[in-house]
Design a binder for these strands. Structure first.
Lengths: 211, 211
DNA sequence: CCGCTGTGACTGAACCGCGATTCAGCGCGC
DNA sequence: GCGCGCTGAATCGCGGTTCAGTCACAGCGG
């Protein structure tokens, strides 16, 4: 951990946002390793290079630290997804794009992948109250991509977009989970994403005659 | 162990196995509602109709209670899956069977569905140490079903059985999760299972010419 | 220039509530 | 009367949270 502890400038460098971000980064790392409940605030503080008390200058509680973490990171993910989806013309290509993009992003941030796939479910409260909003937003995005393509006759229309969206979310989550918990071999996620997209797209093709 | 379930199981009649099972059932219910960490041992005791201390006569700790719960229930699930899979001739039908069976079983036990999908990830320790074994067993089953069918030329062979197995596990998990957290409409899981199987099987068909 | 002081970010050891676990009994069946 | 299964209030350690200080610096007056 780069610790610019030396000499002056310290005060200027360590802007509020900087320290907040440092705490968030440390939290991702620690939560990923031990899970939310098994993580001690003092460990996060140590990992961030701040005192225990400092965390409470930026977050109201340990709970709120986790909440903020999700808010921050998932919002970021959703922004990217929205933007990228719109850059691809409507159709099956969008499904592929979402699948590959999402796994590609997580591939670069193993810890985050683990926090999202594992810790998102740590607190039932979090999952039921907070996450629902973001989660729904995510499913809506996915479902509308599918519904659009169905409308255009590019994907089979005899399956519920919402069910497919859930399945895709789950499949991505499951793949990310096993990857993060396993040896996390480089390129593994990307490769898996391509294969998953292959299967899904073939599976979603319009059927010649839907008997 | 399966013991006399009927008869007037009053306090006097409460055999050891019975009480253990009662505690497990209560634990499923409470864990499902509040999550492992937010659940108090005293709540489980109350729900089971026993004293707090009694739980420690059957389980070494709260942790071990959760572990035993998984051991017990997932072993049961795996047994059913193994048996059922063998009852279906090798091929795509097996994949459908596993998918539909699994969701069908969870449909009847919403609480258990929630515990498995959510609480399985509560404790990173549990997930990393204990679950790995059962989880691998599960993935192996699924992967071998797929690999067999690929061998027989009944499913496309250009995708990794293991990746597909993970994706299927994830898809099932995601569907069960959203179902359990949502309104859990009756028949919803079964319907979702059928559709998922449809898409998967079409997606896994051998491709005319794997260019 | 230099020292003095006010300011506020940061520190970290102590506090305190909580809840898993324990264990000294209790009572029922034999 | 004895023992076994059970009870549930008391214990005790843990760890999130607090808050009395510390420290670096800026501004200011001399």
């Amino acid at each position: 951990m780069t610790e610019p502890r030396f000499s002056a400038r310290r005060r200027d460098d360590a802007r509020a946002g900087d320290k907040r971000e440092r705490i968030l980064r440390a939290a991702v790392k620690v939560f990923a390793r031990k899970g939310f409940y098994a993580s001690r605030v003092s460990e996060i503080a140590k990992a961030a290079g701040v005192a225990d008390g400092t965390i409470y200058l930026y977050f109201k509680s340990k709970d709120e630290l986790l909440t903020s973490l999700f808010e921050d990171r998932i919002t970021r993910l959703l922004e990217v997804l929205h933007r990228e989806v719109e850059a691809v013309p409507s159709g099956p290509g969008r499904v592929r794009r979402v699948v590959e993009l999402q796994l590609g992003l997580l591939e670069g941030e193993r810890d985050l992948a683990e926090v999202i796939t594992v810790n998102l479910r740590q607190s039932t409260r979090l999952l039921k109250q907070y996450a629902t909003k973001r989660f729904t937003e995510y499913l809506d995005l996915m479902a509308s991509v599918i519904a659009d393509a169905q409308h255009a006759g590019e994907l089979r229309a005899d399956v519920s977009p919402r069910i497919v969206a859930r399945a895709i979310f789950g499949a991505l989550d499951g793949i990310a989970l096993t990857w993060a918990l396993g040896n996390a071999e480089p390129g593994g996620l990307t490769r898996a994403g391509t294969q998953l997209a292959d299967v899904l797209l073939q599976g979603l093709l319009p059927r010649p005659t839907a008997a």
